[in-house]
Design a protein around this nucleic acid. Structure first.
Lengths: 137, 137
DNA sequence: AATAAAGTGCAATGGAAGTGCATTTTTAAC
DNA sequence: GTTAAAAATGCACTTCCATTGCACTTTATT
């Protein structure tokens, strides 16, 4: 089991108190979070710091952004072995219309999408909306 | 060939000069447009009017919103026979990373997406990003 | 023509993303 | 250890888009 310090160091990210806290917060969540979610969890910290921290985490492939159609950017930790950095790890996201949470369905890969002749596919964003397992039971 | 008036009337939308102009503008475009695009095309009109017009059009299934990940809502006319109103017409959208335009690939249906047990899929948003036919040639 | 209903325009608000700069903290060099 | 450089943080601000309230105008109805 890696410590948070080790995770950050292995990705060449400087270890700071704030970053460890943010990482811990993300790790405890099983749903994608917004900047405001993080902001509310750390009343002490500034939005800008969180914003830039997430940007750093994203650059280093520790988190990935999720656009679930709510208009608000969400973030989630990349899974072990996730290849978000090379843009080919295309798992899909599920947004619950009931509880409004968004989660990664990491082990559900996006099927190959056919595009017309002349079009080149580089990236795919797929969000399924509906009712999540917690809300449907 | 239906006139614009007939289209609007058939959808129970009151015909006004502004609405006809907006419809015409949309019909001439083969790409999805933002509110600002429409705003710029009609310097005379107010953003609010356009916003509410699009909302009306959307309610009546004349246009559908597109969230292509740019963070800005885009709109496109529904095709003849498009079932956007019943939320089952799931064609995909293509966003060009070069010219930044977004278009509907109306005849490319979204494949059936499997979700884990307990999850209920109601709706799917799929955006493919890459290079469009005009930019790749 | 009178009235009600719907559409339109102006002004303003709110939320989120993003930036510049000063300050603090961390790292590295001496 | 002290110091200089680099990176991180916090504050203030700006911008952009979505959205709403209210007054005014236009359209439909009788």
């Amino acid at each position: 089991m890696e410590t948070i310090e080790q995770v950050l160091e292995s990705k060449n990210i400087r270890v700071t108190a704030m970053r460890m806290l943010i990482y811990k917060f993300l790790a405890e969540k099983d749903v994608a979070v917004t900047l405001s979610d993080i902001e509310n969890a750390f009343a002490k910290s500034d939005r800008t710091t969180l914003y830039r921290t997430m940007k750093t985490f994203e650059d280093k492939a520790i988190v990935h952004q999720i656009d679930d159609g709510t208009g608000i950017t969400k973030y989630a930790l990349c899974e072990q072995g996730c290849n978000c950095d090379i843009k080919t790890d295309l798992h899909l996201h599920f947004h619950c219309n009931n509880c409004k949470e968004t989660i990664c369905l990491t082990d559900h890969k996006i099927p190959q999408i056919k595009v017309p002749n002349g079009f080149v596919s580089e990236n795919v964003n797929l969000v399924v909306k509906g009712i999540c397992d917690k809300c449907s039971s």
